[in-house]
Computed example of a mutant assay.
Amino acid sequence: MNHNFPRIKTNRLFLREITDFDQENIFRGLSNPKVIQYYVVSFNSLEATREQMLWFSEKAQMWWAICSPDNQTFYGAGGLNDIDHKEKKAEIGLWLLPDIWGKGIMKEVLPLIADYGFHQLKLNRIEGFVESENMNCKKAMSKLDFQYEKTLKDCEIKNGKPISIDVYAKTI
């Protein structure tokens, strides 16, 4: 556990460092068909989720566990990855467990993470890569002042099929 890892608290949420104690919750999310429908990473066993736990601890990633204010209920995870201090940019990401979808959590968390990136990490650009079919996420990105930039057509293979990715970005 990193004692310097920033904690972010609001009336409804507590964002804290992801620790090994979260592995089961991470697996619960990243094995859920509803969560991974538009998410690149997925796991079919608790042991395989260890790979993701190691990824969270890498220096180029800064991801938070998204929890209830009392830290008793895990909602999902969000953060910045591929943090590039030289280019002053990073990619933003977020996933939530389905039982809390539609409660405004994403709209509350994404600005908190972006603000941290801009003001604490001194980033100039935060990018979001969204599967073109993920209409809900695309709407949220637009509402949160991320500007649509382009579509990367058939740029990735998922479940044996090509998918397109829409690129959104926010700059300071």
Rank of each mutant, 00 (worst) to 15 (best):
G102Y: 06
I163R: 03
G160C: 06
L46S: 05
R28N: 12
H85K: 15
E131Y: 14
G102D: 14
D99H: 14
E133A: 14
F129D: 08
P162S: 08
I157G: 12
N44F: 04
K170N: 06
Y75D: 05
S142Y: 13
K103Q: 10
S45A: 12
K9S: 02
P6R: 02
K88D: 00
Q52K: 10
L15V: 01
G78F: 00
A90D: 10
T19S: 06
A77V: 10
H85L: 15
S68L: 04
Y75P: 09
V40L: 11
Q120E: 08
F74K: 01
Y39A: 02
L152D: 05
I83M: 13
M141S: 00
Q120K: 15
H119R: 11
E133R: 12
G117E: 03
G29K: 01
K122W: 12
K170E: 04
W55G: 07
A65W: 03
E156F: 08
I113V: 09
N136G: 10
Q147G: 10
N124M: 03
M141F: 14
R125G: 01
I113M: 00
Q23I: 05
F146M: 06
P69S: 06
K86V: 13
K107G: 13
A114R: 02
L96A: 07
M135V: 14
K143W: 07
N136M: 11
A114Y: 11
S132P: 08
K143G: 13
C155F: 10
P111E: 08
Q52T: 11
P111R: 02
V35G: 04
E87Y: 02
I105V: 15
N124R: 12
E127N: 11
K122L: 03
P111T: 04
G76N: 02
F21A: 09
F146R: 04
A60T: 15
I157A: 13
T19N: 00
W63A: 00
N44Q: 12
N4I: 05
S42V: 05
E127K: 03
E127D: 06
M141H: 01
F43S: 10
K138C: 08
E91P: 02
K59H: 06
P33C: 03
F74Y: 09
F5E: 07
D166T: 07
P162Q: 08
T10P: 01
L13S: 02
W55H: 03
G128L: 01
